[in-house]
């Protein structure tokens, strides 16, 4: 087994409610989003948060994963892995995908910055970034800030070197089942 598969397996250890590895194309996103929106929690507001966080993280994989794959219809989509674990008081969302060196550097910078901001500072940072021109397909630059805001808890990340000098980027975020 490769180091990447080991990593994916460690993401799958406890009480997994949702687990998917493969290309994140529109169809996959839409089907998973539907399930997440209606079936994970009894609370509509928690479900809404999960749905939003899922779509932002999944779109990041779809657009930016360094590993791309063609689906049956010939459309390219980023490959990655997603798990949602359920615990007594919270859910944990975890995604992973391959990144290039350049991406890894940008991601670390951004994650380190976001980690140290409180809610008001995050909102301010989001407004600042939103005024900048959009990236490819209108994407980019505020997805992770939005994830931190929606989750109401810090975004954890890790960049793990694999064989062949490749890098695997993991993001984890916690969503409480009850509003604090």
């Amino acid at each position: 087994m490769s180091a990447k598969h080991d990593l994916i397996n460690t993401m799958n250890v406890n009480s997994v409610s949702v687990s998917y590895t493969g290309p994140f194309d529109g169809q996959v996103l839409s089907v998973l989003a539907k399930n997440i929106e209606y079936s994970l929690s009894d609370s509509p507001s928690v479900n809404k948060k999960m749905f939003k966080i899922f779509l932002e993280l999944a779109q990041n994989i779809s657009y930016y994963s360094a590993e791309q794959e063609e689906n049956r219809r010939g459309e390219e989509a980023g490959v990655g892995t997603l798990t949602i674990q359920e615990f007594d008081s919270h859910f944990v969302f975890c995604t992973g995908n391959m990144v290039t060196d350049t991406q890894a550097e940008k991601i670390s910078g951004k994650c380190e910055k976001i980690k140290n901001l409180d809610r008001e500072e995050l909102r301010e940072y989001k407004r600042l970034m939103r005024k900048l021109p959009a990236g490819a397909k209108g994407g980019g630059n505020i997805g992770l800030i939005q994830v931190a805001l929606t989750a109401g808890s810090p975004v954890d990340y890790k960049i793990v070197p694999l064989e062949n000098e490749k890098l695997f980027y993991i993001v984890a975020v916690r969503i409480n089942k009850h509003e604090e």
Binding site: F51, K52, L55, E56, Q59, R130, K131, A134, K137, G138, G139, G140, I142, G143, Q146
Partner: peptide
């Protein structure tokens, strides 16, 4: 009822 972050820029 839902818009992603890239939409949020277009709304602006």
């Amino acid at each position: 009822t839902y818009f992603n972050t890239s939409t949020s820029r277009s709304i602006l």
